[in-house]
Design a protein around this nucleic acid. Structure first.
Lengths: 201, 201
DNA sequence: ATTATTGCATAACAGCGATATGTATTAACC
DNA sequence: GGTTAATACATATCGCTGTTATGCAATAAT
């Protein structure tokens, strides 16, 4: 797993081959089959590893008395994790296009579980009265979708240069909080507060 | 191209092979090289085809006196196009993980050009006073990111069943309009109005 | 001490993208 | 119209991929 993760991170998706892994591990291609049941099993395990890293990063965001700032920091953490592991992130969400690999329902369940941290934070935002009354999981979904879209386009290089993600992400976060019901000024302030907690993540 | 598009749509990404295309066209693998310069050239052309279809679908949204409803309909059109061509959509945005293929800056420029329809609509939303004064292209980007994130997670199967995309997309659209500055009630009404124009797209 | 199981190396198979070479067919030109 | 150049394509081949069957050595179980 370590070797596979390193190969993926350093040399991209096409370096994930049984032979390269075997060469790096000074063994044969059979190791991949005895331990993972084949290439798709290894990819599956890589996806789990990717979600584990994401969850670890999200968990590093501690709850404070400003839940909206916590939520904004969760968004930043999500993006940071994706930028730190771009190839792994691509496999997690675009891996379906890899050789005959498709996620099982269990994998998706594991992926959705990662949303738990966000949902719990959304709960606190709703409880604080700053978000319009609604469903916490739905709010968490909207946060996920928006940040995921931002990150995907950023990694794909589709953001027009003067409006690159670094300049975009704060406005995106403020917009998210406003769309969830928060007031514009309060959201702006909370997002700014989250900026100063970047060292948390 | 027709054969490649059909193979991709019917049998997924791994059916995009020189040999299968050659067999389907009753010729040899060389045809792919003479006409596209190789597999990556064909993928590149498929990406252009994908953006062409997307733009065609977006162009079918006509401008009315309710620019916010037009914008919501653009969002629906974007999603419909992705659901109608899921594999093609995956190649457009996740194709980097395909065998040694990477988008050129020209391809990205062509992709961004598709945003023109959305930007023009954002301009009208801003001019109508319903959106908070700001940059039209930035607004268009935020629309793109949000809907793209929704569609990506939907195609990946990551949306929790009771909150699947069909139930999610309207709230998402309303949230987008609100985050851009529109009033909640007006946004809800415009999104509802866009629902009745679905036959346009 | 014997047996069963496991882990891994070797070799091979089918399929992939890509290339070199040869051959028809077509286009251009005088 | 005849000659030449260029293009399109087929064949065969190379190196690579995932995968499987076979066999051997080491370990675990009885």
């Amino acid at each position: 797993m370590d070797i596979a993760a390193r190969l993926l991170a350093e040399n991209g998706p096409q370096a994930l081959s049984t032979r390269r892994i075997a060469a790096e591990a000074d063994s044969s291609t059979m190791t991949v089959y005895t331990h993972f049941g084949g290439m798709s099993g290894l990819v599956r395990e890589m996806v789990r590893e990717g979600f584990a890293r994401l969850q670890e990063r999200l968990t590093s965001v501690r709850a404070t008395s400003d839940p909206v700032a916590d939520m904004a920091l969760l968004g930043r953490a999500y993006r940071f994790n994706a930028l730190a592991n771009p190839h792994l992130y691509a496999v997690m969400f675009g891996g379906s296009s890899l050789a005959g690999f498709s996620l099982s329902e269990e994998d998706r369940q594991h992926g959705r579980y990662t949303l738990g941290n966000v949902a719990e934070c959304a709960e606190r935002c709703l409880a604080s009265g700053r978000f319009r009354p609604g469903d916490a999981i739905l709010v968490a979904h909207q946060m996920w979708m928006a940040v995921h879209g931002l990150v995907t386009l950023e990694l794909g290089g589709y953001l027009i240069p003067p409006y690159d993600a670094d300049a975009c992400v704060e406005e995106q976060l403020v917009g998210l909080m406003v769309s969830a019901g928060d007031a514009w000024e309060a959201a702006t302030e909370s997002v700014a507060r989250s900026r100063e907690r970047i060292d948390e993540i």
